[in-house]
Simulated assay, not measured.
Amino acid sequence: MAGVNLQGLSKHYGEFQAAEDVNLDIADGEFLVLLGPSGCGKTTTLRMIAGFIEPTKGRITVGGADVTHLPPWKRSTGLVFQNYALFPHMTVAQNVAFGLEMRKIGKAETAEKVATALDLVQLGHLADRYPRQMSGGQQQRVALARALAFQPDVLLLDEPLSNLDAKLRHEVRHQIRNLQQRLGITTIMVTHDQEEALTMADRMVVMKDGRVQQLGTQRELYDDPNSEFVASFVGRSSFIKGRFQNGQFVSSGGITVETDRRLVGEAVLALRPERVTLAKGAGMEPQGGNTYRGQVESISYLGSSIDVEVRLNETDRVIAQVVNSGRHSGAAVGEEVSITFPRDVPVFSASAA
C-alpha cells in the first residue's frame, strides 16, 4: 500500500480551469472523499491520479514515486468507473481478468487472482455469469473486484454508487467501507452525495470551481465549516444574512444575534436544524441563548424527525429539527412558537460565502 501526494495539480482546457492548484497529502490506508457539485473538479482530479487525464501542471506521487506522466497501466492504481464499464460479452471472471491480462500476468496466476478478488466481494459463485444476468449491486461489486484483482496500492472510486437505488446504495457503501478497512488500502472516492461522504470517509475534501475549499474530518467540516458554501454542501443549514454593528450581528430582518465570533461588515450566520430548539405554548419559552418568537410557516415530515420552518420576520426564516415522538410532535402551520440557538454557531464574512 502507499500514500498519495498531489502538489499544485492543475488541468486547464483553454481558459477553463477544470482543476487548479490542488494540494493534498493522502496517508497510507486512508479513505479520502472528494465532495462537491457537478463541474467542481473532483472527477478531473481523480482521473489525473489514475492517469486518464494529463495534468497541465503539478506533480502526483504514489508511495513516494513520481507517476505524473505514467500511463494508467503503469500505475499501481485500480479505478472503478461510475458506469462500471463491464464488457457485456465477457463473463464475470473474464471481466475481472481483463486488467491482469493487459499486465501480461500468466494464466495460472491470473486465475488465482481472479478467484481471490471475487471471493473478496462475495461473488465467487457467479464467476460464469454475464453482466446482463446480474443486479446493479452485483455489477458494481464485479467492477470493484476487477480494480482489486492486481492488488493495487491505491483504489480510486468514481461515483461508484450513483446508479444504485437508495436501499442498495446504503448496503453497498458499508460493504465498500468494510472491505477497504479490512484490506487497509489507500482509497480516494468521488461523490456529490454528502451522506456517502459523511458515512464512509476518514477525511473529506470539499471542492468548488476546480479548487479545494476545505479539507478535514467529517466533524471538522460539519461543525466548523469555513464558508457558506461548505456549510451548505456538508449537511443542512438555515442562513441568516446581516452585518456586524458595534460588535453584534444584526440580521437583514432586524434581529440582534449574540455570537462568539466578531467580524466586520456584511456576514452570514449558519444554523444547523438540530441546534435550533423549538418551544410552544405559554410559559414554555426556552431560557438562555438567542431566543426569538416566530410563526410556523411549513412542516416537513422526515420519519424519525420533523423539520419545522419558522418565520421570524419578513426576511429571516429558520428550520428547527424536532424528534418525532408521536402525532403531537412539532407544531402546526400558523402556530406561534419560540426558537433558541446557541452563541457558538458558524458566522462567515459575506465575501467568503
Rank of each mutant, 00 (worst) to 15 (best):
E335S: 01
S351C: 04
A282V: 10
N226A: 08
V96N: 02
D165L: 04
M189S: 11
H89K: 00
A350R: 06
I26R: 04
V62R: 07
T291S: 11
L312D: 04
V114C: 14
F52L: 13
T77L: 12
L215C: 09
E109M: 07
G281A: 08
S232V: 02
G303N: 05
L70P: 07
T68Q: 06
K42W: 15
G330Y: 01
T77P: 06
L32A: 07
V190P: 00
E285C: 13
A19W: 06
G283Q: 11
T217Y: 02
M204T: 10
G29I: 09
P225W: 00
T61V: 14
D119T: 13
G99F: 03
I188A: 01
V22A: 05
R236K: 13
H125K: 13
P346E: 01
R47F: 10
A111P: 01
D209L: 04
Y130W: 07
G303A: 11
G235C: 03
P88A: 02
E314F: 08
V206K: 04
V33K: 07
T191E: 05
E101D: 15
L168K: 10
L179A: 14
R272A: 08
S10K: 14
V96K: 02
G242H: 01
Q140G: 15
R293G: 07
T277P: 05
F233V: 03
W73S: 08
D224C: 08
R261P: 00
S238F: 00
L118M: 07
E54K: 13
V172E: 06
H89A: 03
L126R: 14
Q295A: 10
L271A: 08
A197K: 06
Q82H: 02
N23A: 10
V308M: 05
L79M: 06
D128A: 13
P37D: 14
S351Y: 02
V250E: 11
K208A: 10
E112F: 09
K74H: 02
R132E: 14
F87C: 12
R275E: 12
K208D: 09
T44N: 11
Q122F: 05
L79V: 05
V322M: 09
Y84T: 12
L183A: 12
L269E: 03
M48D: 00
D202V: 10
